[in-house]
Nucleic acid binder design. Structure first.
Lengths: 336, 336
DNA sequence: GTGAAAGCGCTAACAA
DNA sequence: TTGTTAGCGCTTTCAC
């Protein structure tokens, strides 16, 4: 049977309150008493009960992190950074994946009284009001994904995908490419995909002849996995439009696209240059290795926790913008 | 402010117990009363508090799943299967990754009173006693990974990697291969890696000339990621030993190995056949596509929850063995 | 420096 | 069919 605090108190010959103090505020208790308590704790293999503690402190020391695709190594690294930072502050992290039932999670968060939640998912998948509802219920929220959330209510952490897209386009342009396609997979004309906006800006700024003909958007539920890259690359080829370079919304899609191109006899990068966003490890090992706009994912995760923690402990929302950097590898080359 | 059950009781003009009953056992309460309660619930936007509920029921409806590498899509699929089955029964799943601090998680599980835990990690990483300690503290445990746990205390779910290795070896043998290497990455002479045992059995049974010279084991912490496959393949080449086929402990390592071979001018499969275990999606998209011993990961996850749930609700431990099946793709070919 | 007691929100006997 | 009440294990005033 599990020992409770009162068992400890009895064995140590003190009161339950003293046990609590000895454990959490040892400086308030006589050294000798602390020692007695610690011995009793050890003898009984006593562990405090977080449930009961939450009951009186109103804090669960539990944080949720909601993401779309746990299998994308991109998210895996972010989680790693986030979780290790959280653990250091004694928070327990709940990773929540689950594709179409994000709303259910949100209900669960309230019911389980999480202290905070980090939501990194495109907002097609959830209801914005539900997010504010969390806040109204005392749960601190951090979002990522340019969802246009009210910054007074929730914190946010974003990647500067717009600038990154500019850099990507300039790089391809400098290689002589003029017919540059963008396989987005996300919705067109929506503010969430900054890359899409950045792409169109650059098409105009650089005076590319393709106009918007080479922008391929997706449809609900806007999946951006390897299989989707494969699909959109085939769509691009079927369209009959001219292209010499392709940018994908993320690395995973780039890898699928490369597969599709090779199957149809296109050589990468000789016939078509391909690049992505994120900088996942697989890209390094791919054939050819993938040029990408890299993002320090672990650091991003750590920074995310920092923001959320600040909101939880001090009550202030915050904002952080992360920068990406170009990694040139073998999947891009001079336009012939 | 969050509404409590007594607010609801007041508004509905009934007692708190009636609210509880109306919510969980509506058949025990007059329809009219149920209706009144439901209206009050809605009006107040009341949600039951799981923490308080756990306090009295002694159940948290929370399950932990411990795994080593969240970024391996293999685990992602297992988690997906496990979680969706768990959610159906109203359990909340805690995914726990975190490389070297598994023990800390275990402490946390007790402190947070999880109802059950699914541990799928090689046992180098944790202390077996800690596992039983969970059981002693009332937490039901399911393990995977041939850790040799006492089946009276914990349930287990395993993959028949031994039979799968036999099939893999027979397949390569039938293609004419005699010099077949096995890149394990795990420890030699330990019972956890059934593939390793199966490999040695087949080396003897088929009378392969290589003996055990082509078995490459790893060292602590026995990482089996893509980068490790790359590393061991290079070790194999450096050894100067003859080989025409290579089996890797999992697909991820196979992909890294293929990369290494190609870099050194070996063609796959013309010069060397490569195959793995798991059947992850990336293998399908790889160049060349990867032959593998496939495993139905989502089903595995569902079955895992089923076992754990049975232990939680009925108190009986159980065992399940999953079978793998050969998927032939382009990374293996007749030995020249 | 230490102890007594109230209270966190809920469930589960037991009474009514 | 509904209400009363005693916990669940802990923290936290407030006395002593």
């Amino acid at each position: 049977m599990k020992a409770t605090r009162s068992d400890v108190a009895k064995l140590a010959g003190v009161s339950t309150a003293t046990v609590s103090n000895a454990l959490s505020n040892p400086e308030k208790v006589k050294d000798e008493t602390v020692k007695k308590v610690l011995e009793a704790v050890k003898a009984l293999d006593y562990r405090p009960d977080m449930i009961a503690r939450s009951m009186s402190t109103k804090k669960t020391m539990q944080i949720g992190i909601v993401l779309e695709n746990i299998s994308n190594p991109f998210f895996g690294d972010i989680v790693r950074g986030f979780e290790s930072a959280a653990n250091e502050k004694n928070y327990f992290v709940n990773i929540c994946t689950g594709f179409n039932k994000l709303d259910e999670y949100f209900d669960n968060f309230i019911t389980r009284r999480l202290d905070g939640v980090f939501v990194t998912a495109i907002p097609y998948k959830f209801n914005m009001d539900k997010l504010y509802h969390l806040v109204d219920n005392g749960i601190k929220v951090l979002v990522s994904g340019n969802v246009g959330a009210d910054f007074r209510k929730v914190s946010s952490i974003e990647n500067d995908h717009m600038a990154a897209m500019h850099e990507a386009m300039e790089y391809l342009y400098s290689l002589g490419h003029r017919d540059i396609a963008y396989l987005s997979g996300l919705g067109r004309n929506l503010p969430y995909d900054l890359r899409s906006i950045g792409y169109r800006q650059m098409v105009e700024r650089l005076g590319l002849p393709c106009g918007e003909d080479l922008l391929f958007d997706g449809k609900y539920p806007y999946s951006t996995d390897m299989t989707d890259g494969y699909y959109y690359a085939n769509e691009l080829m079927k369209s009959g439009r001219k292209f010499t370079a392709v940018i994908c919304v993320n690395d995973l899609m780039s890898l699928g696209a490369i597969k599709a191109f090779k199957e149809k006899g296109y050589r990468v990068p000789e016939d078509v240059s391909v690049m992505g966003f994120d900088g996942i490890t697989y890209g390094e090992y791919w054939e050819p290795s993938l040029t990408t706009m890299n993002l320090d994912k672990v650091k991003f995760g750590e920074k995310a926790f920092e923001l959320l923690y600040s909101n939880i402990s001090k009550g202030n929302t915050g904002y952080f913008e992360n920068k990406l950097s170009l990694i040139k590898r073998m999947s891009t080359a001079k336009c012939r």
